[in-house]
Design a protein around this nucleic acid. Structure first.
Lengths: 341, 341
DNA sequence: CTGAAAGCGCTTACAG
DNA sequence: CTGAAAGCGCTTACAG
């Protein structure tokens, strides 16, 4: 047992060997005792843990990654942080993962499948222990990268059909139907759908709106307004103005996201459009401010924190090679009726 | 030159040795040619690069980190993502760093120095190549951790006095003075300061407000309203109501952040307080929506993207052991006068 | 249940 | 300018 060899390249950091020397066991026993990987006699385990604590030992993530072929990183791919939605998802992911000893490696895709693919390639270099992605739509190459890596992956925000695909989310289509039906119950006849960004989930909401209107024979494709620009309050105001100028018969607008709807509400104030008397306005996601703006915005509350937490927990199960109760977790949604409808 | 040895633990990944074999040089030459670390004959460099490209070689970050004692990670510590401010800072950091081949490791401190210290400890395990932190105030232990690590660090949002401390930001105090002076020029006499969260930068703004008022003998400490709760639109509304009920003589309120001011503006609508006739309202940061809300919010526009980019670039210089032009970069700020004052 | 040996894929430090 | 050797700090795979 050589004490403190002064090699030229030593990092000065406390190593497994140091703990082993103090505990008077072999390094591999320290490794096993600390990870709980294989049964180690309980008296040895105690000695090891005491020694590790005494020396303030923490394993080197790089060495561990190199030897085990898995880092303690989890790749997290989300479309955008400026959409507040994903901030909530991310915060609860980080919290859950950190607690379990994992580091989140965050990649912002900007709703671009090629950027997502590129990020995935970069992240995969780090041999992440797990992957968290947004939605089910992506490039074939990206799908293949995930598949071939053999690394566990959970999809967020939507619900997958196949039992081979792990997902945590809710039915975007169903939620949009619920909101549209609420507008119908309020007696609205000409219900427009206004969408920006046009990402897959937005299109699913459009689908829900269409289905609900078709069911009561009120669907008119001229009522659908779409804009590829990113969603924003400013754009919502512009869209409101455009829509009402284009078709004054419209008596309700369902915006695909709350920021658009909030911007529309502010624009309605300027344009002296009475909400909800003349026009009902609804949004989606229940973002910050939607309850404070005048009148309060009717919307669908989506459980972002719950999605992040459930997805992270499912991934934790998968990374530990434990069984997951179900590959598809539906966290639901809630209709929030306020003054704007 | 052994071709493709099938060792039991091989990862299947293309290694330096594979590239060396193809280029008919030693692995170390490949390493040097690819990193440009030391002069390598240009014909060898060409052969190596061609071989690397052909095999699709990418270095293993874990192996590199273990051998060199530095990962390609940069630790980024920010207070909160739900404050939109930091989303902008973060996006531009990520963009700049990724482009240079570095990965951001994001830690959210929740404005808590102990959490920051804990995150720092965790991040330091990964031997980051650089550190980006928010503000200058932190625990002594955190400061020492950074110092002892010897890892280059840049401080964001504020301007450091000492030339030993690298920083990118602007004078929070000065900016608050500018805004307060604007209110004075508008003829306001009883200018309140309303603050939440009470983080160091908020307190610096309070200081600027105090200085500006003292200069014209209008300072009254009863005009200062502080609340430790996190800043939010809802809180802004509550604070407005409280302040006006408490002291109806107040003719202007300077909120330390736009979300508070936006909430106050919405509350003023409900409470039928005329803005700016009866009461001027101003904010700080120029967040999303401040230009759209009615009346437009007068505020200080802070260059978040510029801070993120400049901080990342300075860190890049430091990590490459290049000289930095100046340790303290002042990105300035801009007074945005709108309808609310 | 425990350990000695080998290896993960790089870079450092030393020679030449 | 180039390379053989050793080492970074762990874990895997094989024995016993």
């Amino acid at each position: 047992m050589k004490p403190n060899k002064t090699r030229s390249r030593a990092t000065g950091r406390v190593t497994l060997a140091d703990v082993a020397a103090l505990a008077k066991v072999s390094p591999i026993t320290v490794s096993r005792a600390l990870r709980g990987e294989r049964a180690v006699a309980s008296d040895l385990t105690d000695r090891v843990k005491t020694a590790a604590l005494k020396l303030g030992y923490t394993p080197d993530p790089a060495a561990r990654a190199l030897a085990s072929r898995h880092s303690d990183h989890v790749a997290v791919l989300i479309p955008m942080l400026s959409n507040n939605l994903f901030v909530d998802v991310l915060e609860s992911i980080q919290k859950t993962l950190r607690h379990a000893g994992y580091q989140s490696l965050i990649g912002i895709t900007h709703y671009d499948t090629r950027e997502e693919e590129q990020l995935l390639r970069e992240q995969l270099q780090h041999r992440p222990a797990g992957i968290l992605v947004t939605g089910l739509d992506r490039s074939d190459a990206a799908r293949e990268l995930i598949e071939k890596s053999g690394i566990p992956c959970v999809h967020m925000m939507e619900l997958a059909q196949s039992p081979d695909v792990n997902s945590v989310g809710f039915s975007q289509t169903q939620a949009a139907m619920t909101l549209t039906e609420h507008l119908l119950q309020r007696g609205r006849q000409r219900i427009a759908f206004a969408a920006a960004q046009l990402d897959p989930r937005t299109m699913q909401r459009l689908d829900g709106w269409r289905k609900a209107l078709k069911a009561v024979k009120l669907y008119d494709k001229a009522l659908s307004y779409t804009n590829k620009s990113p969603s924003s309050m400013a754009l919502g105001g512009e869209m409101l103005q455009h829509i009402m100028a284009n078709d004054p018969s419209i008596d309700a607008i369902f915006f695909c996201n709350d920021d658009l709807a909030q911007g529309a509400l502010l624009a309605a104030q300027r344009l002296k459009i009475k909400v909800p008397q003349q026009l009902a306005i609804a949004g989606f996601n229940d973002l910050t401010g939607s309850d404070l703006i005048g009148p309060g915005l009717t919307t669908i509350r989506t459980p972002r924190a719950a999605i992040g937490e459930a997805a992270a927990k499912m991934l934790l199960n998968l990374m530990r090679e434990e069984d997951v109760p179900t590959p598809s977790v539906d966290v639901g949604y809630e209709l929030m009726v306020r003054g704007s409808t």
